[in-house]
Simulated assay, not measured.
Amino acid sequence: MSYKNKTYVIFDGDNDMWAYARMKGWKALENIDFNFYDAHDLKPLTNQARSEDYIKQRLSERMSNAKQAIVLIGNSTKNLYRFVRWELDKALTNNIPIIAVNLNNYRSIDNNLCPPIIKGQNAIHIPFRMRMIKYALDDFPPFHKTLDLSKREDWHYKDSVYQSLGLND
């Protein structure tokens, strides 16, 4: 079994690629303290990527190395079942901590946009802010390990965490 140190990012590839690209951009800048080991760098898709079964097999292999998952929640994420819902279901089944990142910058669950499959499933809901994402990547997986999984809820950080990170707005 390989060491699980990757972050698996789930997003709407048609509408929210900009957010994923921005995260990769933050990671690439040497003067910015932001890093994550992207599970999507593993097992690149080949020309067989037109087959749904092939894509799901590759995504499954990538997720098997993940210690956490980020779902970028945009306007249409909750309506995507073919891959997004499938990926979220796999993360829940494998007890992978889910960091729900609201692209509209809500600091807690946005009931209008959150995919129903992760409502009340011990995900943490945060805004799309670099320092907050970095904080959640470091903080939430260890906290998730301590949870009583028979109790399910939607998590968010207190205002004091945002203040300590200089995110007062």
Rank of each mutant, 00 (worst) to 15 (best):
I126P: 05
P127I: 00
N35M: 13
S76L: 12
S51F: 14
A49D: 15
N112G: 07
K24L: 15
N65G: 11
I124R: 00
L167P: 07
L92N: 01
D14M: 13
Q163P: 09
M130H: 11
D159E: 14
A19Q: 06
A39L: 10
C114L: 11
E153S: 07
D16C: 00
K4G: 12
R58D: 09
S164M: 09
D14K: 14
W86L: 09
T146I: 01
D169Y: 10
A100K: 05
T146S: 15
P141N: 06
V161D: 10
N102W: 05
D12W: 00
K158R: 06
Q68I: 04
D33L: 08
S76K: 15
K27N: 14
I99R: 01
L167A: 07
T77A: 01
P127Q: 05
N95W: 03
N35K: 13
A39Y: 13
L80F: 09
I98T: 00
F36Q: 13
I70L: 03
V161G: 10
W155D: 06
S164R: 11
K90G: 07
D14H: 11
M17I: 13
L103S: 05
R85H: 12
R58T: 07
N122H: 02
C114S: 14
N104W: 08
F34I: 07
L103N: 02
N79V: 04
P142I: 03
N47R: 08
K56W: 10
A66K: 09
N31T: 04
K119Q: 14
A91D: 02
D138H: 10
N31G: 08
N112V: 02
H125P: 02
N95Y: 06
V161N: 07
Q48T: 04
K24V: 11
F140D: 00
P115A: 05
I118T: 00
N47Q: 11
L42P: 04
